[in-house]
Simulated scan of single mutants.
Amino acid sequence: MSAPLNVGIVGTGIFARNKHLPTFQQHSDKFKPVACFNRTKSKADAFAVTAGIEESKVYADLDHLLQDDSVDVVDVMVPVQFNYETAKKSVEAGKPVILEKPIEANLEQAKKLVQLAESTELPVAIAENWLHLECVPIMKEKLAKIGPIAAFTYNSTGPFYPSSEYLATSWRKHPEHIGGFLSDGGVHQLALLTTLLGDIGSIAAFSNQLRKESGTNDIVFSSVKLRDSDVIGTFTYGSAFGATEKSVFLKVYGLNGSVTMNINARTCTTIKTMIGSTGEVEAEEETVEVKEQPFFGVEAEFENFYEAVSKKDKSIVKGSPRVAFHHLAIVAAFLESAAKEGTAIVVQQP
């Protein structure tokens, strides 16, 4: 059995404590936290105690962590405007790196990160866990049964939670990344949508800010067209509303039926398939429930990163910077279209 990868953790906040560290602990045959750094050292000290990291491996700056020869890979959870800078230093130190989404604060910096990743043989990954949901391969199987796809609607909406611990982080309250929560949370939905149906080519959107706590626009309603086909659809996102049920669903319409995916319950995904060429024939119906991983794809994204690093093959990475660039570029197109009163905008490519 191969030795686990020694992980240097950069950023020891909420997601590091609640999702990444438990994932490493559950997969101790693949990952071992050995060093950490946080801008607030007391937080790094506390994290090190929980993670079993030696006190001498709690670093006061990123450079010293990257100089540690015992660190094999770097796991980065910093405000996203520092993603490119951190990735560049990691690559220069010869260490594969995985960075939390969204890819960067703006498209200019995101393009630099794509170029960096494509200039090295080291795996550089964006940790987009929704690419790794258990429902993805099953949805693709069902979509193949409904004939040519014609249209879709994607809705992810929910109520506002002012006491959310994520809302309390300063870089989210005063976002430097475009779209604020539209990119912070919206890229999850866009990752799932595009991995199932393909890249989005153009967008017409309207967007508003409902809550001052969001820092910037926090809802978007849009019409979209896929890049490489005639498929059209709608995409709606926002968790800034008053009392309402949390809703996350995708309905895809084909010439021979439809598939509806509902992931309102984070523990499982419900997929309903209806097969029939018209409303005048009796439709064949099938409903399946897909159990998702406890951390909703985080486990699988790290297994994917481990495989890419172990095999020294960056092509294995599902959440490449080029893939993640597209998700942020869609958000940028939402905002540009909304600023131009719903004018159709072509989504940028890196």
Rank of each mutant, 00 (worst) to 15 (best):
N256W: 11
G257V: 07
V259M: 08
V259Q: 02
T260K: 05
M261P: 00
M261T: 05
M261R: 02
N262R: 11
I263T: 07
N264E: 11
N264K: 09
A265W: 07
A265V: 07
R266V: 09
R266T: 05
T267R: 15
C268L: 15
C268N: 13
T269G: 01
T270D: 03
T270K: 13
I271Q: 01
I271V: 10
I271K: 02
I271D: 02
T273H: 01
T273G: 02
T273F: 04
M274I: 14
M274P: 02
I275F: 06
I275P: 01
I275S: 07
I275L: 10
G276N: 01
G276L: 01
G276D: 00
G276M: 01
G276T: 03
S277Y: 12
S277R: 05
T278F: 07
T278G: 04
T278C: 06
T278Q: 12
G279Q: 15
G279Y: 14
G279V: 15
G279D: 12
E280L: 11
V281K: 14
V281P: 06
V281A: 11
E282C: 13
E282M: 14
A283N: 00
A283P: 00
A283R: 08
E284P: 08
E285G: 04
E285S: 10
E285T: 06
E286Q: 13
E286M: 13
E286C: 15
T287I: 08
T287H: 06
V288T: 12
E289F: 02
E289H: 07
V290Y: 09
K291C: 10
K291W: 14
K291R: 15
E292C: 03
E292K: 08
E292G: 07
Q293Y: 12
Q293E: 15
P294E: 09
P294Y: 09
P294T: 06
F295T: 05
F296K: 06
